[in-house]
Design a binder for these strands. Structure first.
Lengths: 160, 160
DNA sequence: TATTGTTATACTCTATAACTATA
DNA sequence: TATAGTTATAGAGTATAACAATA
């Protein structure tokens, strides 16, 4: 039974964490058959929006250590989704590009993401989803969360 | 700039994951000075609501492997927040209880949680927080998320 | 001397399965 | 023989720091 009056608890913050985790977990399940993980998707997305960027740039955008990026990029490159091209100005750095297959993968991911959202938000109609989006966006802006960048890239580990 | 018409993307599902992660991360930071982690808090909370339960029971409630529980319980017991008492009926099993210090810790955690929620939801007024809570609760119910049980107990690992 | 990307190392946390003591 | 809790082991993933090539 919920308290209707009195000192407010932290139900909302906990609900946010619960539902947010559920969203991440279901999404991870949905892309697993593509042999992709959420960080893979985040990397592909950022590269697609800023092609030619260096691994350094990518690390800054995602707040990831460059050394942690290497393994992800190796795998994406081996699978032909992403390319490391020599940088014209600096032979130390690599310019990152999506391959055609990488762009195709992003389209598939987009479709999967929409299905995922429909499943997750099945309890709400369109108007309610719009309401929810607006409220969450206000929090995200206030919390200085960069659009399209998941804060989990930084440190990892949620409950423990 | 947001698309006002056309095929919907998955912005809402991503926003939920972003804000949910932010909630979890900020909460973890807030309780870190108490030398507690979110799973510690989850355990204390469940025990407080069902004192006398066994480690087996606790594992089922949290969807955690019993072997994973051991280290958490060891630490909480050593710090005097939780007690393993002999079970009257079965000498194999332990009945879990909070100590007075454990109950005190939960009060502190409750205060911290409210501060946390106020910080996280600073962009919204009371009415808006109520709206948001209702919408999220509808999703949580539809997704069969148990009240007060974080789905992250199960498997862990969000971005990867 | 500083910087880009890579590799090496140590550490944390987990699931699985073996183990003990009771039942 | 089965069950409660514990311990052992191996694996996944990370941050940190050392490293080679280039600037």
């Amino acid at each position: 039974m919920a308290r209707s009056t009195g000192k407010p608890g932290a139900e909302l913050a906990f609900l946010l964490s619960q539902v947010g985790y559920q969203s991440a977990a279901l999404f991870a399940e949905r892309i697993a058959p593509l042999e992709l993980t959420p960080p893979d998707v985040g990397i592909l997305k950022v590269v697609s929006e800023a092609e030619g960027l260096s691994q350094q740039d990518l690390g800054v955008k995602l707040s990831m250590f460059p050394s942690r990026l290497v393994a992800f990029l190796d795998q994406l490159e081996q699978r032909g989704l992403l390319q490391r091209r020599p940088s014209p100005a600096d032979r130390r750095s690599h310019a990152l590009y999506l391959s055609p297959a990488g762009r195709e993968a992003l389209k598939t991911i987009g479709r999967i993401s929409r299905e995922h959202q429909n499943q997750l938000c099945a309890a709400l109609n369109e108007a309610e989803r719009g309401q929810l989006t607006k409220l969450l966006q206000r929090i995200a802006d206030d919390q200085k969360l960069a659009p399209g960048i998941h804060p989990g890239f930084r440190k990892l580990q949620m409950p423990r």
